[in-house]
């Protein structure tokens, strides 16, 4: 009793901000972000059109992965339909442009809104069922979308899809050329990242995390878990749709196979490998999925096997993913914990 009172007196002198991240970690964090941005801006001067294409693919993939990370990493709702929502985004925007002559930017916005609405609708089962069952519903939904794209060829072009998709122009400035399109995707990734970052540090971000950590408790504290669940789904699916509207002009064709279940599983792996619940996670995961294979081209058809083995090993030893590993490093090397904390924990 007296011991604990002494302890409290010691503790009371401490100010709140003393024990946050250490300055060194802050420098490291912001430093690497700035370095990454500079790297991404100057890299087109040093690599050819093909690598610019690969990096564009990375940026577009990362956007969709950010959407899944928001749902899964923060709100704890697993979706196995990220591929399908990219398909919805890609097909809706492409068909609006090609068949109705709608302006690309307008088509993009419509496609994103459609993805958001369908995403929220898919979120409804999430209210009724939990955990695995939710993953199963979204998995079924993904198959249904692919079947639809394959079978309704009067609209979707069937298994062959739509070819010769044009890249858009902005204020009369054509984005056809690879470098320009690369910068365009980079800007889009920046917008998506800012959006997610803003969301995560807003009260919504806390509500999402609360939903994941302990939905019961969140509800007992008055959080409207229903709305937040639907919102997580809507935004996550909206980002997938957004990414889809970009992938169509990037690869210049769409076909159902691009969006099949395997794609959604790949996104799941990306988010897990990168580190779910970390802002950097999707960027890292998309790097493993899109850029690394290019460096490991010698591995050729064996690449996916290597990737799968890598995933299994990583999950085995670092269940929190690469970004989670970074957090462990931070905890170990960049943070002083107050002696009181340790004392009390040992007590």
């Amino acid at each position: 009793m007296s011991q604990s009172e002494n302890l409290q007196q010691e503790i009371q002198g401490t100010s709140l901000s003393d024990y946050g991240d250490s300055a060194a970690w802050q420098y490291l964090k912001w430093g690497s972000l700035v370095a990454l941005i500079i790297f991404l801006i100057v890299i087109p001067h040093y690599v050819g059109a093909y690598y610019q294409f690969v990096l564009s693919l990375w940026a577009v993939t990362a956007i969709s992965a950010q959407g899944l990370n928001l749902m899964m990493g923060y709100a704890g709702k697993v979706s196995l339909a990220q591929g399908a929502f990219m398909g919805i985004g890609a097909y809706v925007s492409t068909l609006l442009v090609q068949n109705w002559g709608v302006n690309f930017w307008l088509a993009m916005i419509i496609a994103i809104i459609v993805s958001i609405i369908i995403g929220a609708a898919i979120g409804f089962p999430a209210l009724r069922v939990e955990g695995h069952y939710l993953a199963f519903v979204t998995l079924g939904f993904n198959e249904l979308v692919v079947l639809f794209l394959r079978n309704e060829d009067q609209w979707t072009g069937g298994p062959l899809g739509v070819l010769n998709i044009e890249r858009p122009s902005i204020f009369g400035y054509s984005l056809f050329e690879p470098t320009r399109f690369y910068y365009f995707t980079l800007v889009m990734l920046a917008i998506s990242s800012l959006l997610v970052w803003y969301m995560i540090r807003s009260p919504w971000g806390r509500a999402f995390k609360a939903l994941k950590d302990n939905p019961n408790r969140a509800e007992s504290l008055g959080l409207d878990t229903t709305s937040y669940t639907l919102m997580a789904f809507a935004i996550g699916s909206g980002l997938a749709g957004f990414s889809g509207t970009l992938i169509a002009p990037l690869v210049e064709f769409v076909e159902p196979n691009q969006f099949q279940l395997l794609k959604s599983l790949e996104y799941l792996l990306m988010v897990m490998v990168g580190g779910r619940g970390f802002l950097a996670g999707p960027l890292i995961g998309a790097f493993f999925a899109e850029v690394l294979p290019e460096w490991l081209r010698f591995a050729d058809e064996y690449y996916l096997i290597f990737f799968a083995i890598f995933v299994m090993l990583l999950i085995r030893f670092f269940p929190e993913g690469v970004a989670g590993f970074g957090k462990q490093i931070r905890r170990t090397f960049f943070r002083q914990t107050s002696p009181q904390v340790q004392g009390e924990q040992n007590a």
Partner: peptide, 28 residues
């Protein structure tokens, strides 16, 4: 067995990895 202590999620990821490995391996 090694993944059970970490909950079912890593295990799901690992079996997806295994599925991809088996599929690609069979193709080769």
């Amino acid at each position: 067995e090694p993944l059970i202590p970490y909950g079912d999620f890593p295990l799901v990821i690992a079996t997806i990895g295994l599925a991809i490995m088996l599929k690609e391996g069979a193709k080769i």
